[in-house]
Amino acid sequence: MIEIKDLHKSYKMGSNSLHVLKGINFSVEEGELVAIMGSSGSGKSTLLNILGMLDVLDEGTYTLDGVPIKNLNETKAAQYRNKFLGFVFQSFNLINYKSAMENVALPLYYQKVGRKERQEKALKYLEQVGLREWADHLPSELSGGQKQRVAIARAMAAEPKVLLADEPTGALDSTTSYEVMDLIQKINDDGNTILIVTHEPDIADMCKRIVHLKDGVIVEDKKITQVRASQYV
């Protein structure tokens, strides 16, 4: 599903250049649930941003579902993001003046799905994350866990190939974190490919594979036995 070869990325900081990713080789099969771990500054978020086409790579190749991702202009990148990827952010990034349902329906708007169908689909995905009756509420009226579940519903609504989550539990207490992880595991159980960036070991243990990043290179890549989050909920 995802194939990365010899990926390099550096940032210009004035006259210096900061080499963040120094040759990453990495691939993800369909249906995997991968945790990308590392201390801050290890380059894990940069890697996720490149995977998410939110940022561009300097060197190497990136293939997503058989499509080479290179030389994208903003319009093309936006279309690919819309078609291939769903995002979940640490700070939720819901649009604060739109209701939960409208937020979930937004990626479908950019897919040019009709209004009625958008609403039906949005309600369906809100149902999946257990927030059907909160559809008309604004993000400010929801708890952190609820916001993140709306964000996950929004990411899923576009039916993406890959779900990318950047510290999805970073702003949540542990009980809520486990609820969110439970939801992510269930979505993975349905066959969806998911990548999670985290620095919390207990969250990483709930994935099926852990990739350790240190100073811009992969130092460890292992398959693990998944800890089900449902037992903590």
């Binding site: 998410g52 319009t75 279309q79 993001r81 819309n82 995002f87 990034n93 649009i95 950019y110 576009a158």
Partner: peptide, 14 residues
Amino acid sequence: KELGIRKALGATPK
């Protein structure tokens, strides 16, 4: 920020 979210969700510059 809102525009950034919209772009992440697939809004084109146009």
